[in-house]
Design a binder for these strands. Structure first.
Lengths: 246, 246
DNA sequence: GCTGAGAACTTGTCTGAACAAGTTGGCCCC
DNA sequence: GGGGCCAACTTGTTCAGACAAGTTCTCAGC
């Protein structure tokens, strides 16, 4: 919590949580908040802009801001990593590496990770679970420059993201996710302890660093009876988009 | 295109599209752009903030902004509506109402639409297609105060959103989407011309007005061989969240 | 009691300025 | 040639003020 506008955004979130500002009610005017926190109107606007993009409050020119919802479920911020998400829900994340090998980058790998074709890239097949029950099969390809750091990780480590950050300072900053549904393959079925052809939620994603350099791409398949995804869209912040099949 | 910062954002998007600023290259400094467009630094910052949240450019304090990608696929902005999306891709959206009836609101309907239980709400079962091929089954429940306007709509109308806007001025401003995978039911299979138990991508969504008033909630099932969804996440803009099954 | 006009209020846009914090490149020295 | 330090550059944060554009409330008039 470093900057003033982040502090104010957080105080407002908490105030909404403890129903100081009721859902459906109105937030104080910008000038009111500015006076109360002893900052300029611009700083207040930065704070409320954050809440607006989170969908907590609605905003229209001329009218006071309205509280739309209290904090969505619980977790909202730091849940890019499966392990972090599980911990935030009070459940234990487990992980197990089933197979791991270097293969020369295919044309597809090379394009997605911005590498030259043929460079050896690390393929990892991992099963992840909540409290021991398998819920996710992850097939990940890591860029050559990060592979050595991944290779050394304990096969049973619950959080790869965490270990990569501690080991190399790497931060996953951007992600592009393509979501669809597929029938479980024989291998999926065995690893997740379900029947073949059961529906799975597939998320194919590319994760990049702050500089926009791709780190990994992954095909994740979730047991759809255990995990779903939630997306919030608002006017001017259209994170969710449809795509036709290639 | 009314405000100056929107204009500048658009010019930058176009400049990136025509590779004036190459992917991987650097954007001019804020002061540079401010001078070039004859505006203050604050206005330039509003413009580049839009591109950052779209994932087109990356930003780190101290370093020049980097171009991460050219415009994502094509459509980005105005694709909340199925019909608008289809048109933007040069395909024709079709729609057909299979069934339509008023039922008293269940406790679930009432909670999601913020109505009193028992109020008659309009249930509509609709099949939608691209160029005649069915790709989507939509089971929608409309709030009582908008139902009359929906009821009057031509059963074969391609765009309900458009007609509602023209008829009542209603704008869909916010949406909460929960995504998972399900096996096709017998009815789904018949309507979509696929086999039962084939995997479908299910999107359950609640759409609200600018004031945060829920308008409709819907269970949409997409043929996963025809349509997928794409979500862009960035640091500080975490639209995508996992959820456990209820 | 209802309607319509207008005043008061509120958010959106924009300016110009200053300092803080982080990055990059070049220069000097070894 | 290589390493390290510093200066120049760039983005992030914050302020104070001004006007535009839209909403809400009040009050007069019917």
């Amino acid at each position: 919590m470093s900057t003033r506008h982040e502090e104010i955004a957080d105080e407002l979130r908490q105030a909404i949580d403890r129903e100081e500002y009721a859902v459906g009610g109105r937030l104080p005017a910008e000038t009111e908040l500015a006076a109360r926190y002893g900052v300029s109107r611009g700083t207040v606007r930065q704070a409320v802009a954050a809440l607006t993009s989170e969908g907590l409050i609605g905003s229209r020119q001329g009218a006071r801001r309205v509280v739309l919802a209290s904090r969505r479920s619980q977790s909202f911020a730091e849940l890019r990593s499966f392990a972090q998400w599980a911990r935030a829900m009070g459940r234990e994340a487990t992980g197990r590496v089933v197979a791991q090998e270097y293969l020369p980058a295919s044309a597809q790998d090379a394009a997605r990770l911005q590498l030259r074709p043929g460079v050896p890239v690390l393929h990892v097949l991992r099963v992840r679970g909540l409290d021991g029950e398998p819920v996710l099969v992850e097939r990940t390809v890591y860029a050559d420059w990060i592979s050595p750091a991944v290779e050394g990780i304990d096969p049973d480590a619950p959080s790869v993201t965490q270990l990569l950050f501690e080991g190399t300072g790497l931060v996953f900053a951007y992600g592009e996710h393509v979501i669809d549904a597929v029938a479980a393959s024989a291998q999926d079925a065995e690893l997740l302890d379900i029947r073949r052809t059961n529906p799975l939620l597939r998320v194919r994603r590319v994760t990049t660093t702050r500089e926009g350099r791709p780190v990994e791409w992954s095909d994740d398949r979730y047991r759809s009876d255990a995990v779903s995804f939630s997306v919030h869209n608002s006017i001017g912040n259209n994170a969710l988009a449809r795509k036709t099949a290639e």
